[in-house]
Amino acid sequence: MNDNESRGNLYLFTGLILGLAVGLLISLVISPVEFVDIDPSAMGEAYRNEYRLLIAQAFQSDGNLQRARERLALLREADPARSLAMQAQQLVGEGASPADARALALLAAALTNPQGIAFTPQPSPTLPPGEEAQTTREVGQAIFTPTPPLPTRTPVPTFTPRPTATPMRALDAPFVLESRQDVCDGSLPAGRLVIEVFDRDGNPMAGVPVQVVWGQNQTSLFYTGLAPEISPGYADFQMEAGVVYTLRVGAVSDTLNDLSVPACGGGVRVVFREGR
């Protein structure tokens, strides 16, 4: 009797295993889940970083800030300017291409302060009356489906007409030291070297290379504009007590020597202005 009952249960178990094998074969081999028609925000982190860099470099090419904004919006980040600045800092920290970091920093600065960057994109051409530029407002969710994607087209984005590219201003003018001040009132952390760079008109300048050299040819290269929330022309560097630093702003400026942590233990603020 007991043998008959356990045999009765065994056939159910066998059916379950058979079904499971068929189910797994279908769901993992024959028709596995595939993501198709995703929007840029669904890409992996590394690819989103590449996409962000591509947007920044394309912005350098066409100077179209509105278009860059719309492209960044596709990544659905709360604070695109901050993401750009953080990626620029990360690239600098990793010793990656300075040009890439600069492109990111410039776009971050342009987003934060469109009027304060060294080059001003031309406005988009005015559309004829009755026509409105179509922009991407809605992007599709990632669709995962066990079947191959259907070639259906969804509403698609078009971007604003492309304006004539405005070449970036060459940063070949020497930057002149306007002021140098030891800050001992506690407003700067100990050893903080703050660099602020302004253009000829007094606007903060993003994307200006700043090089600090110390010790046995140790060097650090970074750019203004990596902290756009402070100022597009802002950059800083952490000095160590007892070490003497040399600073150069831009490519052809004179060096500023003998920088070190002040005796009061505060920071140092230097201001440079673009020469004529």
């Binding site: 059916g15 379950l16 499971l20 094998a21 068929v22 769901s27 698609v156």
Partner: peptide, 30 residues
């Protein structure tokens, strides 16, 4: 029981063991 097994297999493959969205590449962009 076979049908239940198939259902379990499909749920596992299609809902539980889905590809990691963090690995999605521009290749599958719209």
């Amino acid at each position: 029981s076979i049908a239940a097994g198939i259902g379990l297999g499909l749920v596992y493959g299609w809902l539980i063991k889905t590809p990691d969205p963090g690995q999605l590449t521009p290749q599958v962009l719209r």
